[in-house]
Amino acid sequence: MIPEQLTQGQYDTVYNLLSLVIAAQLFTALFLVAAQPRVLPRYRQALLVSAVVCGIAAYHYFRIFDSFRDAFVTDAVGGRGTYTQAPGASFNEGYRYVDWLLTVPLLLVELVVVLALARKLQASLLWRLIPASALMIALGYPGEVASSDAVRHVFGLLSTIPFLYILYVLFVELTKSLDRQPPAVRDTISKLRILLFASWGVYPIAYLVPLLGFDGADAWVGKQAGYSIADILAKCLYGLLIYRIARLKSFADDPAFAEAEEGTAEGHASGRSGVQVPA
């Protein structure tokens, strides 16, 4: 339930978190687009998909931000005081679910692409993961907007089933893929597995905040904070790890490319220090 009032501190918390997510998603997307030449062509699709994910998220957070500002207003002088719901306006929680319906399948695509698995295995993974991710989001939304805790419990439980299935498939396949990956990449992929569990696990926790003994404005603000932090971890940090995997695999696949990139990095470093590197 959307609270009827927010204190100044609660309003500022949500306002600043939404601003943080917009900045994080937007500039991560720009970085991933600019970084395309830093990996081999076979891995650029993964970076491009990751940039699209962050771009979609940035757009939706702009919409969420506008919806939040329209939904809560104050008559206090200087805009500092208690915020109440504006007549005829309401915070649109649906923007998050539209975003997730688009971005979660794409997050799975970028992971499968960057691992460069056999085409048959890639197709098998995507056929299993994408429908499950869409089902997870679709089942979560009715519970999100429900006014009844019982309905929220039911749909939360139903959406957990495809959620656990996705994590199981990803963990199993990521573990199997380690032996087929270059040694330099294995540690990063292992960390990616941990990030998947840690960041994706924040979403159900945030979803359950209203059912964990919190109520009113505190529960709503906590839920918004949880979703915002999870989106930064699951999209921005995840995208940067995808970039690191792509770069390390590019170095392992093509020593000449690695040598050229390392030479470029040394040239930049010497230019900054004013020292010339001999040819």
Rank of each mutant, 00 (worst) to 15 (best):
F155R: 00
L211R: 10
L178T: 02
A150C: 01
R193Q: 12
R193L: 09
V221P: 03
T188K: 10
W220H: 06
L195T: 08
T160E: 05
I205L: 15
W200F: 14
L167M: 15
S159E: 09
I137V: 15
A184T: 15
L170H: 01
P183E: 15
I161E: 00
I205E: 06
Y207H: 08
L135A: 15
V172C: 03
V154N: 01
I166H: 02
L196R: 03
Y203K: 07
F214Q: 11
V172N: 11
V221W: 05
Y207Q: 04
D179N: 09
R152W: 06
G201S: 12
L164D: 08
L195A: 11
D187C: 04
D149Y: 11
S190N: 12
I194S: 13
L196H: 08
L208D: 13
R152N: 06
A150L: 14
A219G: 06
I205A: 13
M136C: 08
S190Y: 11
V145W: 08
K223P: 01
G222A: 09
Q224H: 08
E144V: 05
T188R: 13
L167K: 04
L167C: 05
L157H: 07
P162Q: 03
M136I: 01
G140L: 00
A150H: 10
F155N: 02
M136W: 03
V221Q: 05
A225K: 06
L174A: 08
A198P: 05
W200R: 06
S199V: 07
E144I: 00
P210R: 12
S190Q: 14
G156E: 02
T160L: 14
P142V: 00
T188H: 10
F197C: 03
G140D: 02
V169E: 05
S199K: 10
L195D: 11
R193K: 14
L208I: 09
P210W: 13
L164F: 14
L211I: 09
K191F: 09
G143C: 05
S148V: 06
V221R: 05
G216V: 06
L212P: 06
E173V: 02
P210N: 11
R186K: 13
L212Q: 13
A206C: 10
L167N: 07
L135F: 01
F171S: 13
V169Q: 04
L170N: 11
A146P: 04
A132M: 04
Q224S: 05
H153M: 12
R193V: 04
S190E: 14
V145A: 11
A225R: 07
G140W: 01
